[in-house]
Design a protein around this nucleic acid. Structure first.
Length: 327
DNA sequence: ATAACGCCCTGTGTGC
DNA sequence: TGCACACAGGGCGTTA
């Protein structure tokens, strides 16, 4: 459930502390989180040992460390994944899956902790993006990156911030090549998105969750965006005119920027930054998880419906069901 | 080709 | 008390 803001919080933490460090003493404690590395665990370990981190980049919910070997360590947090920077002598987490030593940094090691193991790590090749640029936030050139000093939790220097996107000859991991630019990507092509939505025969929430159309939006922020835009989840995408599309897109961007400014949303201890700290945006939610509570806009009782094997929360008055919706 | 379903995982909460 | 089951849901392989 970490969505764009939560993953970006992690990316910023990693960018600040691991760029310039060299990976060593990689230890895989459970095979499943490395299942996407098809050449096997030994190959995963040997490709990482001795590699130096040049950059930390994100597109949608995918995150990767670009390495001086020309490859990338690709990470997806899935439902419950965490990337933590910890002292090597800190006790192992119950669900610690992969440990990566880091030389030349703060002395902390990088840990991939994942209870449900929907997420994972893989060392993958990079390819040039068809439209140039890595997408998402970040992509800061290594030479401009802050030198890791001090300890996590005691920020030193300026980390990458929104707007520091750099276009150019950027590369993207092969498994991410089919993922669309994300909702906060300055190079998101809204005209292209509009054209693809018009041709789609599906419901609006399905489209918002389709990472090949627009990425970074998950179940929580989809519901929040629809509530803010006063649109029903089953609204047929081919009936969306451009102002309405702009409205829901702006709502998604607004709510994710607000969440990012709060350090992300946290419902429990699963969604944390590299220091294990939770965000504070939960209080800012208007739709997700509010079944039976009063709509923050009109006071009607919020409803929950099961859809796509997920819960959808909405206000039945502000977001009326369309006559011919697509579920 | 597109659209949608089902599976993978584990811990928590609920009902019988 | 213990057991069964629903739920959380992103991404991808399979099916229609």
């Amino acid at each position: 459930m970490p969505e764009l803001p939560e993953v970006e919080v992690v990316r910023r933490g990693l960018a600040r502390w691991v760029i310039g460090t060299t990976i060593d003493e990689v230890e895989v404690l459970h095979p499943r989180p490395v299942r996407r590395h098809e050449a096997g665990i030994d190959d995963f370990v040997s490709r990482l040992n001795g590699a130096t981190v040049l950059d930390v980049v994100r597109r949608g919910k995918f995150l990767w460390l670009s390495l001086d070997s020309g490859e990338a360590l690709l990470a997806h947090l899935g439902m419950s994944g965490q990337l933590l920077l910890e002292a090597p002598d800190a006790p192992d987490e119950k669900h610690l899956r992969v440990r990566l030593g880091l030389r030349g940094g703060t002395g902390r090691e990088l840990r991939f902790v994942d209870q449900r193991m929907f997420g994972g790590l893989a060392v993958v090749d990079l390819v040039k993006t068809p439209d140039g640029g890595p997408g998402g936030l970040g992509g800061v050139p290594a030479e401009d990156a802050p030198v890791p000093v001090g300890l996590p939790g005691e920020p030193a220097g300026d980390g990458p911030v929104e707007g520091e996107y750099t276009a150019g000859e950027a590369l993207i991991p092969v498994p991410v090549a089919h993922i669309a630019r994300d909702a906060l990507d300055p190079l998101l092509d809204v005209d292209l998105l509009a054209a693809r939505l018009r041709r789609r025969e599906t419901g609006l929430k399905r489209a918002l969750l389709d990472q090949t159309l627009i990425s970074g939006i998950g179940n929580i922020y989809a519901d929040e965006a629809l509530w803010r835009a006063k649109l029903h989840y089953a609204r047929a995408t081919e009936t969306l005119n451009r102002p309405t599309l702009n409205r829901v897109l702006a709502a998604a961007q607004d709510v994710m920027r607000e969440a990012l400014a709060q350090g992300g949303t946290s419902f429990d201890s699963l969604y944390v930054d590299v220091n294990g700290q939770s965000g504070y945006f939960e209080r800012g939610l208007d739709a997700y998880g509010r079944e039976g509570e009063a709509c923050h806009r009109c006071g009607s009782q919020m409803r929950r419906e099961t859809f796509m094997n997920r819960s959808s929360f909405f206000c039945p008055k502000c977001q009326p069901k369309p006559r011919s919706g697509r579920f």
